[in-house]
Design a protein around this nucleic acid. Structure first.
Lengths: 222, 222
DNA sequence: ACCTGAACACCGTTCAAGT
DNA sequence: ACCTGAACACCGTTCAAGT
């Protein structure tokens, strides 16, 4: 039966991890603190140690929660489309939690969905004709590529309001415009493109396209 | 003139940053602490605040120090070779300090060498025919690609002794071998390739090749 | 099984003061 | 200009104890 204080929901790994995810999304990973988490959950800091061995274990739990949300699509026969599908699935799962993205690579091999993703990637790369060594490296590169994109997401990457983003954008452009034009002509010419991304979806598409085109370029000729 | 206690070298941003780099390389970024740093430098924790506004500022200093070490080669006319040269220069500068690699992207635009690198990349990608928007994204992707490789360097990535690495390698392989073979056949087949890299240089070469091949695949036809 | 209480050894940082 | 001293508000974690 539930505890007396009906206000407090029962504690569990998932409840704690979900709350930690909310804090991380709203205020960044540094804001995720055993003590803060305990206060918000109406519990003593030590209570959390029943569910997580250490804070590191808790952070691993966050990464697992993100990986668990991955929905792998069905495989077709085309290796390029399959790679795209897996990367897109990862992007969809990770974009809501850009702060946690960096933790995912450490969990990829210790998580059911992570193993499924890796198996998928290895099979696909083997289909494309790669030997085990490059296939393994390219599979990991796909993961890192997605993590990198999500981490530097031009929109959601750093929980800010629209006004804050606007102010920062103006600051950045003013800064780039102030650079010596004889030394940094291209930088100045690209100032707008580097500071503003009209369509975030295109941002991710380009990253995935880049990876797939790279794999295609390196693939052994059939 | 030097202070009385000749044992203590004069404090400065560079002296502090170099010491912090040593600690980070040997024991990881978490070991870099204002108080620890002060003790090692024979000084009060508060002394460091004369040279760095905050700890964040100190960490930025570490990233700057890594970027300062980049030696850009001369440019040829071939855009692919130029891209390769810039990425290789970044790899050479960052590999000795894999723990700091993650901090570099935040400094790339606030550092002389970072700006030089970006200018180089943008000019090269413009030469290859890219419009400003994709050129800007691809330039950042090159940086992230290098950071990702250095961060997961199979050899130097996580300051361990040869014995520790060997033990971990055996553990990992035993773990992969214990997976259900009907569900993870490729993973098991790739176990050796995923856990051991015979030549770290090839690891980085493949990553750079992947990026360049990707750019080539996306480049507008001449 | 699940949680509390008190204590320990750390953090980064402010503020006033010394030289 | 450069550094010290004392204090504040935090951390993660251990260990023994409660229910």
């Amino acid at each position: 039966m539930p505890p007396k204080t009906a206000s407090r929901p029962a504690l569990s790994r998932d409840v704690v991890a979900d709350r930690a995810l909310e804090i991380a999304d709203a205020e960044g990973l540094e804001a995720v603190t055993i003590r803060r988490l305990a206060t918000e959950l109406g519990v003593t800091p030590m209570a959390l140690y029943w569910h997580f061995r250490t804070k590191e274990d808790l952070l691993a739990g966050l990464a697992d929660r993100v990986l668990d949300a991955v929905e792998l699509p069905a495989r077709g026969g085309d290796w390029a489309a399959d790679l795209r599908g897996a990367m897109h699935a990862l992007v969809v799962a990770m974009r809501p939690h850009p702060q946690v993205a960096n933790l995912v690579p450490t969990r990829i091999m210790h998580n059911q969905k992570g193993l499924d993703l890796t198996e998928w990637a290895l099979q696909t790369l083997a289909d494309a004709g790669f030997a085990p060594q490059p296939a393994g490296q390219l599979a990991m590169q796909a993961l890192r590529s997605v993590v990198g994109m999500v981490t530097s997401d031009p929109v959601d990457g750093s929980g800010m309001t629209a006004e804050e983003r606007d102010a920062e954008l103006r600051t950045k452009r003013a800064y780039l415009a102030s650079l010596p034009p004889d030394r940094y002509p291209a930088l100045i010419r690209h100032a707008d493109a580097m500071t503003y991304c009209p369509d975030p979806d295109e941002f991710f598409d380009l990253g995935i396209d880049l990876y797939v085109a790279g794999v295609r370029g390196l693939a052994p000729k059939a």
